[in-house]
Every structure is written in C-alpha cells, then in structure tokens.
Simulated assay, not measured.
Amino acid sequence: MGNQVEKLTHLNYAEVPTSDPIGGGPDDAGPRIGVSYIFSNDDDDQDDQLDRCPPDKHRADHEEKPFDPRDELPCAVYYREERVYERSAGAAAHAAESLLNKCRPGDLLEFVAAGQYPHWAVYVGDFQVVHMHRAEIKNNFLTDVSQGKRGRVVNGLYRYRALPPEVVVRNALDHVGTRDRELYWRNSECFAAWCRFGKREFKIGGEIRIGKQPYRLELPLTDKKSHVLEFQSLEDVVMEKRRNDQIGRDAVAQELAGHLSAAHGPGDTRCQNPGSTGGPGGGTPPVRSRDR
C-alpha cells in the first residue's frame, strides 16, 4: 500500500482538494479545510522557474527586491492543541561565509530570497550540507548551495524533540543519491526536518487524510485577530506555509483582505476559497477568522 501511495504522488496533478466527511454548507461558520498538495513539489517548481529565466533578468529582479525579513509572515502550527511550529517575523539571515561560523553538525539551515521558496538543508560538517534539490538528495558545499542567498540556522522552528546530532547527520548522509520515485519527501524542508526529528509525518503519505483535520495553521492579521486554516496532514501544512513564505507577508494580507471584501462584504470575517494565486497548488486553502 505504501508503495502505491508513493507512486501516486508523482503524477502530474497540481492538487487534490480535501473534503469534510461531516459536511457543511457555504454559510456554515465552522472550520474550513485546507488543500491537500498531493502532487506538487515546490522546490522543483522553483528550479524550473529559475531555469526558464535569463540569468540577467533573474539577477536584476533580486537587485530590485532584496530579501527583507520584515516581509515574512509570522505563523504558528498546531496539532490539536499542541503548538508544533512557530515563526516570528524579522529573523536575521546571513551571507554563506558568515553562516559557516554559526553551524554545527546536525543543524537545520534555511536559505531565503525574495519571491522564492525557502530552501532547507542539513549541515553535516566540513563546510558541507545535505539537501533535496531537483528531486534528488545531494551532498554539496554550503557556499555552493546558497547560490548567493542568505541563510540562517532554524533548529528552533519545529518544537519536536531533536535526535542526537550524529543521528541527524547519519539520516542525511544515508540518503544521498536518492532520487525521483525513491524519494519519501515533498520538498527540501520536509526532508531536512525529517532528518533532525525522525517523524514520519514529514514523509509523503506519512499520515492518512481522513476524518477531522487535526492541524491548524494560524496567520496573524492584527494583534487581536488571526486567520486559521485547517489541514489533515503536516505535509499539507508545510506546503501552504511555504507558499506564504514565497509570496510574502503583504501579498498574503492583500489576498485575504481582498477575498473577505469580495465574498462577504464589510464586517463579515468568514472566508471561502480565495482563488488562484500562483502557488504550488494553484490557490489558497479555505480559511476562517477568529479573535485571539
């Protein structure tokens, strides 16, 4: 059964919407359900996009809009009532040469650039990292992987108990060379996080998407109000979270505000599907608002 799931995840479909087995009409104020990004790989989408852009144009785009930590959207992920992930806005990122001085074997690294999906890697020592790139697990020098992007150590974002550093490094190195249909992870973040925490929830098909949605992605709108998206698996949450990281804080806020205004009029805080925004699954999952 597991092999069948792994083969299905490599079909050329963009997304498969989840459904609530309990049901609920469009005017129901209850929880809204996120999109299952079953068939997409955001890291590959990013690589293909970069390959199609002339080098000069790509360089000019980044000169026009350099990475700004203040453009990141803070968020938190809950499994039932347990907070399992939290990102605050404004975390500093460093040039690759500076980042090397901060790394220890087993650390999780995140490379960031404006308008791109974050790229995650595991530092394994001797200036090298193991990471998932273009549907293959590779071992490269940190400076080569950064490709001019800024990076940071992100061990504390996920609140799971970390494995010993030597186990994290072994998990990463043991999979170097794994590619295509042999892969068990949707993107670089899921692979790197699995290496450090060893949780099957980061793997493709690691959780069955049936029943009530146990995961919540909370996005702050103001100091007193936030949007909450609900998902059936951690894998789906990661895909939506990374989509938000790619388009940036202002774009997410405009997306949500525009949908609220168009769909329900002033004063109504309930949300349906905001429509296509160019993310890996072609649209934003349905959401609901709540007071903090």
Rank of each mutant, 00 (worst) to 15 (best):
S289W: 00
I204G: 00
S98G: 15
D180W: 12
R186Y: 08
F127V: 13
G248K: 05
S98R: 13
I137H: 00
R292S: 04
R161Q: 15
A114T: 10
Y37P: 03
D48M: 08
F141R: 12
D236W: 11
H119R: 13
D268G: 04
I247P: 00
N12K: 12
Y37W: 13
P286M: 12
L221A: 04
D45Y: 07
D20S: 13
E189W: 09
R59C: 03
F202P: 00
D223E: 08
K241M: 15
W185A: 01
N140C: 13
R186C: 06
I33W: 13
K199R: 14
N12D: 09
E86A: 09
V84M: 01
L100P: 09
G90T: 07
E110S: 08
K102G: 03
R179N: 09
E15Y: 08
R249G: 02
D20G: 06
M132C: 10
E207K: 11
R83G: 00
R70A: 14
R170Q: 15
D174W: 07
L234D: 04
S188G: 09
G106Y: 06
R150T: 14
K212G: 01
G206H: 03
P164C: 13
H58Q: 02
V77L: 05
A96K: 00
G23V: 01
C103F: 03
V124K: 01
R216L: 01
G278T: 04
D268P: 04
Y158M: 12
